[in-house]
Each structure stands twice: as C-alpha cells, then as structure tokens.
Write a protein that binds this DNA or RNA. Structure first.
Length: 509
RNA sequence: GCUCUCAUCGUCUAACGGCUAGGACGCCGCCCUUUCACGGCGGAAAUCGGAGUUCGAUUCUCCGUGGGAGCACCA
C-alpha cells in the first residue's frame, strides 16, 4: 500500500526519561516509513507534563536518535549546551515543543467551548476518585458522570474568577468510532464507555490527548505510527478530531517490546535506555538492524541473498527498501539480548581495524604501553571474539600486564611440573637465540617446530600460551609473542618456570 | 471489574488454502584447532484446545483457554 502523497510522520517522545528501546523502535519504524515513501519525518517533544519533563532528557533522546542514525527533517535540533533554543529548529510547522505552543492550544480550547464541545468541570479529584472506585466495584466501566455538563460557560467563568479551580472536559459523543489500523485492521470502539475526558487544566495548559490531536493536525501529519499502548486512546482522539473539524490521519499501532515474562519491557530484565547500550559497546548499526527485525521481517524471498540463503544482516538502505508496514507483527516481541550480542559481533567483525579502533576508543580507554602497530595486531586477534566493543579491554588486558595465575594452569594434561619446566626452559633458550628484528610469529613458529614435533605440540604450546597470557583462553602463543616482543616474552617464560618450581616435582594430579 | 487486542520451535520469525512447517539466536554433537573464540557440518526443538467451512486448514469462521495493553487533572 503506497500512500498517494508523500507521508508526514512523527515521533513524539515525552522528555520524562531517557530514550527507551521501545521508543527508539517506534522512531525507527516511523523513519523507515518516511524514507521508504520519500516522506517527512518530524520529531515533536511532548513536554506538557511540566512536573516530569526535563531538558536533559530531551537532550538524551535527541542525541541517541542521532547516534542510531535516525535523522529527522523537522523538529528541535541538538545543541551542545542545555539551552534548547527554538531558533535552532528545522521545519516550518514549529515550534516543535508543546510547551511553546500554548497559544495554539488556547485557540482550539476556546473554539471547543464556544461550540459547546467542551465545558468547565469543578469536581474535585477526590470526588472523581470516589466515583471511579464505586463504579469499578459495581462492575461498571469507570467514567466521569457528566455532573458539570450543565454549568453554563458564563457561570463557570465567574466561579473561576472567584478563585474556584476547574478543568476543561470534552463532551464525549455517545457514538461508536471505527478505526482502520494499518497493522491491526479494523476495530470499533464505543465512546460511551470513556465518558467526558479532561483535555486541559486551563486554557493554555492542555493534556496529552488534546495536544496530540492539535499538533498532528497543525503539523499535517498523515500517518500516526506509535506503540500499542496508545491504541485505546485512538478512539478518544478521533472524537476530538471530529469535533475540531480536522482530518483523521492513518493509524498504525506497533506491538510492544516485551520482557522474557511477556510483560512490557522494563528495567527489571534488561537495560531499557539506548544510552546504556551505547555505553556498553554496541554499535548503532547493530542495534538499528536488531530493532528493525523486532516485530517486523521481510518475506523469505526478499531476505534471500544471491545464493538464496535467508539472512538477517541488512544495511539501513536495504531496510528502507524492504520495509513494509503491513508486515509488522501483531503480537508483542520479547527482547532477546543474546541475539543482539550475536548481531553486534557480526557488525564488529565487518569493521576495518581502523574503524574498530575508533569505535572502541569511544567507549573504553586503552591502556598505554603498546605501539600503534602492536595495538593493530592485538585488534586482529580480538575482533573475532568480541561481542561488544568494551570486550576488547578484558580480552587483551594481559598484553598490558601479566595477570597472576595458578601455577598448575601451566600443566599440560598430567605431565609432571618438572618436565613442563624443562620444556619451557628449552623453549626459552630457543627463543633467546632469535634476533630482535626477526622476532615475529612466522619466524617463531619456524624455530619452535622442531621441539613441538619432538615433545608434542600440546606439551609445548599449552604451557607456553599460559605463560604468556596467564589465561585458559587466549589467542595463540605465536601471535602473543609477536606483539609482546622478545624481552617481555622471555620475562614471562621466566615467571612461569619459577612458578613451576614452587609446585615441586610431584604434583601429578 | 470493563474495553480492546494477540496466539508457529525457549526467543525473533518464514510459509498464493496444498511439500518432510523453512531460517536466525540460543542449546547439543562432530570437524578445524595447543586452549578459547571464529568458521564448517549435523542434531533436538513449534502451528494453544475444540468445533465448523473445504477434496485439503498454520492459513478462513465461531467458541474456549491463555497472554498482553488500556481504563489519570501521565504521556
């Protein structure tokens, strides 16, 4: 289904927290839809909740959107300091922050009052809450009774000027609305179940449902693509849209991202902030790819490579081409961190060493002490075992400093410590005869081949590798020696021989 | 409680109403390898249940069961 005109879509986060994985995916699908159909992607900041909205959250959201490679055509721009100025915005439908759009909301609030679609309500929160409780216990759907519906506007205005506090309610029509969702199909909602909702605390202080509808209309949004948690808001919003005389946009409600226990994704099971993933060493391309495939998938034919094999690693451009919103899954998707790790590893392996080093330096501090070329070689041994950029440090820390290890780790199978020590001594001797400038992996392999063949490869190479790395799992001994250089190599072998001496000859366990 | 909604391996998913229900992650085994990882090969693993429509249902309809979301002066 291709829209007739270029679509205008939006991501409308509320700056009450950092960019959430779920939010990132919503933004991503909006972006994919806009790019696919050559439309416009708008970011609008929904900061009508003054209590909870914070500029640093807006900053975090924008920053991480950008990090993920989700660029927007209209909306607030990232500023390096915390002064988030309207003048920096992109697009002609601004301001793109709801807190700066009060006059617009006020205009429509007045219009609704004038046309008798809205009225002032003087019921207190306590009264409403009590009503709600009794309705619930009676098995009734909780909704406002409409008690203040009859208060004439003139009387309401007088009471307010006398200091009584009031909220603006929308007269919900007794009707059914039908929503045709691009993902979920047609659904009929009964508006009489929701009652007269509060749309503003005062003329210039709108609530979510009211503000969204006005902004989407003013910003000429054609397709509203958002999370499933908004699905039941849609009916109320359509009623509001009709009262205001706006056009009803197309809707698409995305399934939720779930915890392993199938509830809405939360911090209880995994990190939820995109910035955490950035910090932990995930590549934006990997997270992008992973998120795109969470709840959506191209058809088997589309995903096949030249050999007809199905694949899951796609570039952004490929995803844009392949994306079809109709193929978005209806059921929620559990967030599978292991698969993300795998995908991240794939992307790490595809990087050039130069780019990988840059990426690693963005998230970790590489200890001093090794030359550029040594680090390059280190990278080539480590990159295929890294799942995250931050793994590099753990994987290669033994190059910078030999960790303390148990002497018995040096023992190959059940060889006596004295024999292992002898072998290492022979190796030490052979290595010390290699000149400094020919001290490289190939040459070392050559000079050690005789003793390995004679004594056994495992018997020579296992203790040697442990001596060099202090670890059970590490790159091969020749590669390590190559990076370490002759002096450090010999010194580490010396340490090992000393350790073996401490065991004594009879540890045949 | 009320409204809406969803249902294929453990997880993400593929499959004009028609094959032994395919792939990926993870898991297991084998190979490669001094170790770990990478890589290669192989394996276990799913259509929630019951009716109906049909020559034939994973696919269409209904019921049931189970899950989820929403029901604010939050968004």
């Amino acid at each position: 289904m291709t829209p007739s005109k270029p679509p205008r879509v939006r991501f409308a986060p509320s700056p009450t927290g950092n960019l959430h994985i779920g939010g990132a995916r919503t933004a991503l699908f909006n972006w994919l839809y806009a790019r696919k159909h050559e439309g416009v992607f708008v970011v609008r900041v929904e900061d009508t909740d003054k209590e909870r909205s914070l500029p640093e959250y807006e900053e975090n959201i924008l920053e991480n959107l950008e990090w993920l490679g989700i660029d927007w055509d209209e909306g607030p721009q990232l500023t390096k300091n915390l002064e988030l100025k309207t003048e920096n915005e992109l697009g002609k439908f601004g301001p793109y922050r709801q807190s700066e759009r009060s006059e617009i909301y006020e205009k429509y609030a007045k219009k609704l009052i004038e046309e008798k679609h809205a009225y002032w309500c003087f019921c207190t929160k306590e009264e409403i809450e009590a009503m709600r409780q009794s309705q619930m216990t009676q098995g009734q759907p909780p909704k406002y009774s409409g008690r203040c519906r009859g208060v004439p506007t003139s009387e309401a205005e007088k009471r307010m000027s006398d200091g009584e506090s009031a909220v603006l309610r929308f007269k919900m029509p007794e009707a059914k609305v039908s929503v045709n969702d691009m993902i979920r199909g047609k659904t009929v909602f009964d508006l009489s179940l929701s009652g007269d909702i509060v749309i503003a605390r005062s003329l210039d202080d709108p609530l979510y449902n009211f503000a969204v509808v006005i902004d989407d209309s003013e910003m000429q949004i054609t397709h509203v693509i958002r999370g499933e948690e908004h699905f039941s808001n849609t009916a109320k919003q359509v009623a509001l849209i009709e009262a205001l005389g706006f056009h009803v946009p197309h809707y698409a409600h995305m399934p939720l991202i779930l915890n392993p226990d199938k509830t809405k994704m939360s911090k209880r099971f995994s990190d939820t902030a995109v910035s955490e993933y950035k910090k932990d060493g995930y590549l934006p391309e990997a997270l992008f790819n992973f998120l795109a495939l969470l709840g959506w998938h191209p058809s088997a034919e589309q995903s096949a490579d030249e050999n007809g094999e199905e694949r899951e690693i796609f570039t952004k451009d490929e995803l844009v081409k392949l994306f079809e919103i109709e193929r978005v899954q209806k059921a929620g998707a559990v967030f599978n961190g292991q698969k993300l790790d795998w995908m991240n590893a794939q992307y790490i392996k595809s990087l050039s060493q130069k780019d990988l080093l840059v990426a690693i330096k963005n998230v970790s501090t590489i200890p001093d002490g090794l030359s550029e070329s040594q680090i390059d070689r280190l990278l080539s041994f480590s990159m295929e075992r890294m799942k995250k950029l931050t793994d590099f440090i753990e994987l290669s820390d033994f190059f910078f400093e030999l960790p303390d290890y148990e002497p018995k780790m040096l023992i190959w199978q059940d060889a006596p410590a004295s024999v292992v020590a002898e072998t290492l001594e022979s190796v030490e001797k052979i290595i010390s005869n290699v000149s400094d400038d020919s001290f490289n992996a190939n040459r070392l392999l050559e000079v050690l081949s005789e003793i390995s063949d004679r004594v056994g490869r495992g018997a020579v190479l296992w203790p040697l590798r442990v001596a060099l790395s202090g670890k059970e799992a590490s790159p091969g001994p020749f590669e390590i020696m190559d990076v370490l250089g002759k002096n450090e190599t010999l010194s580490r072998i010396g340490v090992a021989i000393k350790k073996l001496g401490s065991i004594g000859g009879d540890l045949g366990l």
